[in-house]
Design a protein around this nucleic acid. Structure first.
Length: 270
DNA sequence: CATTGTCCCTGGAAGC
DNA sequence: TGCTTCCAGGGACAAT
C-alpha cells in the first residue's frame, strides 16, 4: 500500500525517467480511475504536453505539464506505475506513451486508484493537512492537531486533513516507536508523548524513504523493484512475531475499522 | 462540526 | 480438489 515513503520513492524514480518527455498518446483501457473528465478530454489534455516536474503531496503524485496543468495520481491500495515493463501486466488500466519511445503503464488490481487532470493542484489536494517532513511540522503543530479530538490517536494520524501521507503501516510503526497505545484518545496525550510521537513520525517516514518504501503487499517502484522498509518494521503486519524491544508477541486489533498492530506491553493506555 | 458507518473492488487465504 | 466465504484498506460520501 503506497504511503508517503512509497510515493516519495516513486516520485524520485519518475523524476529521472519522465521530466522533459512529451506525451504522444494515452490509452485508457479502464476509465474508472479517470476522474471528472471524459476519457477523450483526459487524453487530449495530455497529448502534446511536456512533463516539466514531478512532486508529491501526501500520497498524491503531482506531474506538472508544460501548459501549466497537472496530472495528479493517487495509487490507493494496489495501484502501480511501471516504466517499460518487461512483461505484460494483467491489470493495466491506463497506458501513457511518449515521444521518442517509452511507455508508462498504470496497473491497479482493485481499481481504487484515481487520476485527475487539473489546472490547479489545489482542486485535488487543497484540503490536505501538513506535510510531516516539512519544517512546519513542529511538536506544537502536532499538539494543536491532536488536542481537539477525542478519537483514538491512530485514527487522528490517519486523517489526511490533519497530517498528509501517513497510512496504516507507518501509523502503527510511529505509535510503537513512541510507545503509545493506538487507542489512546488523541486529546489525552501528555506533552512528553506528543514530543515522542512527533520524533517517531519523522523517523519512521525518513527510514521508509531511505529503504525505498515497504512492500508488504504488492508495492513496486516504477522499475518493478520492491522496497525494503518492511524488513525493518517492528509491529506493522507482524502479528505473533516478538516485539523487538520486549519480546512479547505483537498483537492485532481493529481501530477505526483498520487492522492495527502493536505491542501490548510496550504500548500501554495512559 | 465531529464522528461513525458503508461502499468501492478483487485476489488470495481460510474454511468446508 | 474445488467450491464458497471472508478479508484487506484509502478515501468519498451518507448518516448520526
Amino acid at each position: 500500500m503506497p504511503e508517503l515513503p512509497e510515493v516519495e520513492t516513486i516520485k524520485n524514480a519518475l523524476e529521472l525517467l519522465l521530466v522533459g518527455r512529451t506525451f504522444s498518446a494515452v490509452r485508457i483501457i479502464d476509465e474508472r480511475p479517470v476522474q471528472r473528465l471524459s476519457p477523450d478530454e483526459f487524453c487530449s489534455g495530455l497529448v502534446g504536453r511536456k512533463i516539466t516536474g514531478i512532486s508529491r503531496r501526501g500520497k498524491y503524485l503531482i506531474i506538472g505539464l508544460s501548459d501549466g496543468s497537472n496530472l495528479i495520481i493517487h495509487l490507493r491500495m494496489t495501484g502501480a506505475l511501471l516504466w517499460n515493463p518487461a512483461e505484460e501486466e494483467p491489470f493495466t488500466r491506463v497506458e501513457f506513451f511518449f515521444d521518442g519511445g517509452g511507455r508508462l503503464i498504470y496497473t491497479d488490481v482493485r481499481r481504487f486508484g484515481a487520476m485527475y487532470l487539473v489546472a490547479d493542484p489545489k482542486e485535488v489536494v487543497g484540503k490536505l493537512g501538513i506535510e510531516p517532513l516539512s519544517r512546519g511540522f513542529t511538536r506544537r503543530a502536532l499538539a494543536d492537531m491532536l488536542k481537539p479530538h477525542s478519537l483514538p490517536v491512530k485514527s487522528s494520524l490517519l486523517n489526511q486533513e490533519h497530517i498528509a501521507g501517513i497510512g496504516n503501516m507507518y501509523a502503527d510503526e510511529a505509535l510503537f516507536a513512541a510507545k503509545i497505545h493506538p487507542q489512546q484518545p488523541a486529546d489525552s496525550l501528555a506533552t512528553t508523548q506528543i514530543n515522542s510521537l512527533h520524533q517517531a513520525i519523522k523517523n519512521v517516514l525518513k527510514k521508509g524513504i531511505k529503504n525505498q518504501g515497504a512492500s508488504v503487499r504488492n508495492y513496486r517502484g516504477p522499475d518493478g523493484s520492491k522496497g525494503r522498509a518492511h524488513e525493518e518494521f517492528c509491529v506493522a503486519h507482524r502479528e505473533g512475531h516478538p516485539c523487538p524491544v520486549c519480546g512479547s508477541p505483537v498483537k492485532r486489533i481493529v481501530v477505526g475499522q483498520r487492522g492495527t498492530y502493536y505491542c501490548a506491553r510496550c504500548q500501554r493506555l495512559k
